[in-house]
Design a protein around this nucleic acid. Structure first.
Length: 104
DNA sequence: TATTTGACCAAGA
DNA sequence: ATCTTGGCCAAAT
């Protein structure tokens, strides 16, 4: 889908160890449809190839991973993030404000 | 074409 | 702190 292409392109610019909220990602893609971002991820099994694990809610919570919201799946996302140096505790990202990525 | 659905968000209560 | 409400808009049905 057209929006998805932009989103994926932007995701590639998010460096390892940093994250972006759904909102910022959507706005950077030129739309206000932050809700649509999640839909795109769900339907596109580009799973960990494009770093969808670096996308989070503005509150610093994880949202979901690979179409699911259950704790087990989220834990995988957490582990994956940990390998990039991002710690998640009690469904909250530590140093959230420090690792936010801003698009040019 | 019309309706429904969210991996959302911000503001109230 | 938690819960509800209303708004949002692309994609999927």
């Amino acid at each position: 889908t057209p929006l998805a292409k932009k989103v994926y392109a932007l995701l590639d610019t998010v460096p390892r160890g940093k994250m972006t909220p759904y909102k910022a990602l959507a706005l950077a893609a030129g739309t206000k449809a932050y809700r649509a971002i999640g839909q795109i991820m769900k339907n596109n099994p580009n799973a960990p190839a494009t770093p969808c694990h670096r996308v989070v809610s503005t509150k610093g919570t994880l949202g979901g991973f690979m179409g699911k919201t259950d704790i087990k799946t989220l834990q995988k996302k957490i582990d994956l993030l940990k390998t990039e140096g991002i710690e998640v505790k009690n469904n909250r990202i530590l140093n959230f404000n420090r690792i936010l990525h801003s698009f040019s």
